[in-house]
């Protein structure tokens, strides 16, 4: 069963296309990720789906309800965590929770099973003002508030932005447990490494969706072998390889460079002969599985190239 359906949605702000002809479906119980940088159009899309914003073109529905016509009905069925920390800073954890429970016509006890996991973690700080919580705790509280009325679909706009690695990890574990309860979750993030935690992801850039697939398929669809190249002076080597005629792309990824070449068939040997020209110290070359970020960069470059061709 399709839970969220987006068909040819566009949203313009003046001349800027924030969302540009976007279409995708999310199945019920799926954990669906919108991956892309700021300005990709993720937030606009969320606001259209949560009935806060009207699209200029296209249609969208949530659990079969139209986001324009049936907006009141949708509002009862969804949970939404906006991008910014959106709780009352001057209210305590418990006051925030009971307030949001009340406006959704429920109580903390009613759906306790759903939030228990998360609530237990913030319970010790029940009387602390929300503004005095750490980033990770705020995020948990916001999630609790979004879940309190047992929504059928959960929209989380960049819940992990600006949060440290430990809290991010915990947060994704919580989402995985929520998924087990058959809640459809649509989540956005600028962190590419979080993509693999989703069932399916949409890679978004400049208002457009570049690809909608499972993370595995996206990686599998990467057309070329990727080689990790390590050396002492990585930045020096990067500058050389970028302009090497045999190299298709070369980007820094942590302690390695990720390299693809123009030649159709390659081996570690052939890469070695290209790189060796620059006499790097402590050279390491190995073929690797590309990451989502490799795919994103590749798709972005393709998109830019297309845009330039269109322009001419």
């Amino acid at each position: 069963m399709i839970s969220v359906s987006v068909k040819n949605i566009s949203k313009l702000y003046g001349a800027v296309k924030a969302v540009d002809d976007v279409s995708f479906n999310v199945q019920q119980g799926e954990l669906f990720g919108l991956i892309g940088p700021d300005g990709a159009g993720k937030t606009s899309l969320f606001r259209i789906l949560t009935t806060l914003l009207l699209a200029d073109h296209g249609t969208a529905s949530v659990n079969g309800l139209d986001v324009v016509k049936d907006y009141r009905a949708i509002r009862n069925k969804i949970g939404y965590m906006p991008g910014r920390f959106s709780l009352y800073q001057d209210l305590t954890v418990n006051e925030n929770l009971s307030f949001f429970a009340a406006i959704f016509g429920t109580s903390i006890e009613e759906n306790y099973a759903l939030i228990r996991d998360i609530y237990e973690q913030i319970k010790p700080f029940g009387n602390r003002r929300a503004g005095k919580l750490s980033g990770g705790m705020k995020q948990k509280l916001a999630l609790c508030c979004a879940l309190i009325h047992k929504p059928e679909v959960l929209f989380l706009d960049e819940p992990t932005t600006g949060v440290d690695v430990v809290s991010r990890k915990e947060f994704w574990e919580m989402l995985a447990r929520l998924k087990e309860q058959q809640i459809t979750i649509v989540v956005s993030t600028p962190y590419m490494d979080e993509a693999r935690r989703c069932d399916r992801i949409a890679l978004m850039q400049a208002g457009k969706i570049m690809s909608v697939e499972t993370p595995e398929r996206i990686i599998h669809n990467f057309p070329k072998p990727v080689y990790a190249v390590g050396a002492t002076d990585l930045y020096g080597l990067l500058k050389e390889l970028r302009v090497d005629p045999a190299v298709e792309s070369c980007y820094a990824f942590g302690e390695y460079l990720h390299l693809t070449v123009l030649a159709a068939t390659t081996s570690e040997q052939s890469i070695h002969s290209i790189v060796q020209k620059y006499q790097p110290k402590n050279l390491v070359i190995k073929e690797i599985t590309p990451t989502i970020e490799d795919s994103f960069i590749r798709l972005m470059n393709e998109q830019n190239a297309n845009a330039e061709n269109d322009g001419e």
């Binding site: 940088p37 700021d38 990709a40 600006g162 994103f296 960069i297």
Partner: peptide, 20 residues
């Protein structure tokens, strides 16, 4: 202080070029 938050992966790398 967190200079590259929310930027696309290509720009992020261009930014690190500048840092280098």
């Amino acid at each position: 202080d967190e200079p590259t938050g929310g930027v696309d992966p290509i720009t992020r790398r261009q930014f690190w070029d500048m840092i280098y």
